[in-house]
Design a protein around this nucleic acid. Structure first.
Lengths: 207, 207
DNA sequence: AGGCATCCATACGCTTTTGCATGTAAAACG
DNA sequence: CGTTTTACATGCAAAAGCGTATGGATGCCT
């Protein structure tokens, strides 16, 4: 086996990225060498340097195999019917996010970004986390403001505060789950938590 | 300057640990060499290898300069008067934790553990985070159960669920703040969030 | 005051990893 | 069908970082 067809070459590229994900999770990004990745995929560093410029390039390619979470989330929110029920829209968006996160590759890459890589070349995982948090909190704020205008939110809870509460809760749940995903399903736990939290912040039924 | 007095030697040891903290935060644990730490403290690696066995030993020493957060938290809860008001006890314990976290060394070490180190020798930061989470959630559960027995908790919110909600919220806030502590004060933000969350879960006044 | 232990700098060998250069056999293409 | 390009494997030089051995000047003890 020396020269592969184009399809086989693409397959080895994916295999290298798969191997990188596994090694990064097991030993951390900084402590895994390109040789370890290549061996774990059944190849040598030659294959790595053929498909990728260097370790940072491989890392980028690994990230680009998954979409950032809020690209999915905002898609889940484009139903115009949901604007009338913003709290329900938030709940469904969260559930949609949970579903996406449970896909193994999705989960692995986020676990690497958040728990198994400190800083790396031109990519700063903390900056990426900040971007994700900003995006998330911004979307939540919009929907909570909408809910407040419609009177769906308790009047003693400002929209900003509601957004911060839910944002922190989601972030904490996210981190806890990524630390040990086998302990519970983020879909089930998250659905319960979001449901009760939204119920708590919902305006009491008019009497 | 060659031989230092004992006090000076102890000072250089502290200076090395300070330098390590700063370099770890700036460049991550894995990507900072002992030489960088020594130079940043105005010394050479000789000083490092005199005071510490190796990088892992230095890391341990750095950790041992701060106490783990829940050692402080449980101390804040030993007032027997607070058992009668468990929700208030939880609030005060959180506030006490926030105060401790705002001390620079405290904050730096936790930021390193959570955001700037992947795995390192015999210490696994994820395991430490899990321990902290377990300890925190356990204490919260106890107090919420106490609150439930006293009727201080809404009867549609089980104690377990209340503990999980607050635990996730605290964790998310903690991570967000460690990512960029200059944006807000965890003491102020945390106090507000905990206060409103506890108010939401509190049993409505009897009528 | 003298000897010893301390505190740190310097120097050396070693391992690991990286980046590139080269080899090569088959696939792709005209 | 011949040539070129592809898709790797292999080998090599260089750098970085670690651990230790050694040196050396001074504080500390008797």
């Amino acid at each position: 086996m020396v020269r592969k067809t184009k399809a086989e070459a693409a397959a080895t590229r994916e295999a290298l990225l798969d191997a990188a994900e596994e090694m990064f999770i097991q030993h951390g990004v900084a402590r895994t060498s390109l040789d370890q990745i290549a061996r774990h995929a059944g190849m040598t560093r030659g294959a790595v340097y053929w498909h990728f410029k260097n370790k940072a390039d491989l890392f980028h390619a690994m990230l680009q195999r998954v979409r950032l979470p809020f690209q999915d989330l905002v898609e889940a929110l484009d139903d115009p019917e949901l604007v009338k029920k913003p709290l329900e829209a938030i709940r469904l968006a969260c559930i949609s996010g949970f579903e996406h996160l449970e896909r193994p590759r999705y989960r692995r890459v986020h676990a690497i970004l958040i728990h198994h890589c400190e800083v790396f070349g031109d990519i700063d995982p903390l900056a990426m986390q900040n971007e994700m948090a900003e995006e998330s909190c911004g979307a939540l704020r919009d929907y909570f403001h909408c809910a407040a205008r419609l009177g769906h939110l308790r009047d003693d809870i400002p929209a900003e505060l509601a957004a911060q509460l839910l944002q922190s809760m989601l972030g904490g749940l996210f981190h806890d789950w990524l630390r040990n995903y086998e302990r519970f399903s983020i879909y089930e736990e998250g659905s319960r938590l979001v449901k009760t939290q939204l119920a708590l912040m919902q305006a009491p039924p008019a009497e």
